[in-house]
Amino acid sequence: MSDGTSRPALLLAHGAGGSLATNYGPVMHRLTARYTVIGADYPGTGSTPRATRPLELDGLADQLLAVADAAGAERFTVSGFSLGGPVAIRLAARHPQRVTGLVLTAPFARADAQVRLTARVWRTLAGSGDATTLGRFVFAHALSPAALEAMDPEELDAAAKETGAAAPEGTPDQVDLVERLDVTADLARITAPTLVVSPVDDRLVPPRLHRAVAAGIAGARLVEIPGGHLPFAEQPDRWAALLTGGVTGAVE
């Protein structure tokens, strides 16, 4: 929410099956030190009621804009993680006068065949009630091989079960949108300075899709970082530095 200071506003768009708390919580203290941070969970996440019809990208973008309006933020940078990437792209394409910059982490303009197949399995597991298998599936795709190997088998299995049990109720709806969305045509309409952060070991949204987003936005800067799909888990300090550095800040 807006706190009346002169700090710039940062609007957060989280990923499918995530939340503001899970995706940005580990770096939130760094973000709030620099920005007035604004955001809202998608339908079916946190205290936001689950949708009664299929989610649409325009609806999520409108939801974020409404939160910014309620906070009194006329202009803002948007940080979009994973599914939040295309949400941020759609918001910036529709409201270029409001968006001062984009920081897109592990984004995609549309799901390719591999991502669609992965999403269909993810959506089925999310609706199955089998939290253990869901968590194992997510960990296998979202963490890098190095991060997985660093955990002993019992620790890994316990963490996977916990992750599956904590999946938001609206995860199937959000993953369904991952399969359907396409912001390819929006990329050429982006006028805001853009930074694309690409985790090089991302197996959920492969780096080729991150690079395609950067290539489609005029003047976009691509920065590769180590690790898998979840930089807040594997590279929180490096990710926070990129988020707080903004779209033109120096990379350490």
Rank of each mutant, 00 (worst) to 15 (best):
L177T: 05
I225E: 02
G17Y: 01
R203W: 05
Q174M: 09
A214R: 15
D237R: 07
L243D: 00
V99R: 14
Q97F: 02
P107K: 04
P226N: 12
D62F: 00
L204V: 05
R208T: 11
E56H: 10
V223K: 13
E155V: 09
V178P: 00
I190E: 03
S19Y: 09
R90E: 03
D58N: 08
R90V: 00
L31W: 07
A250V: 12
V178Q: 04
S19C: 07
P236Q: 06
A240T: 01
G84P: 01
E162Q: 11
T118N: 14
A21E: 09
T48H: 08
M28H: 06
L117S: 12
R7H: 11
A16Q: 08
A109L: 04
T5L: 12
Y24D: 01
A111C: 06
S128M: 07
D130F: 05
A146E: 15
T194E: 09
A158C: 02
T5P: 14
L83Q: 05
G4F: 15
A218S: 15
A131L: 06
R116V: 12
L230R: 14
A92G: 13
I190S: 12
T244D: 07
V78I: 15
P207M: 07
R123S: 10
R90G: 02
S19N: 13
G72A: 12
L204E: 00
L11I: 09
A215V: 09
V67S: 14
G85P: 02
R75M: 04
F232E: 03
A126F: 01
I190L: 15
A140M: 13
Q235Y: 05
L10H: 11
V37T: 13
I89M: 12
R34W: 00
P226F: 02
D3C: 13
R90S: 06
V67K: 14
D237F: 06
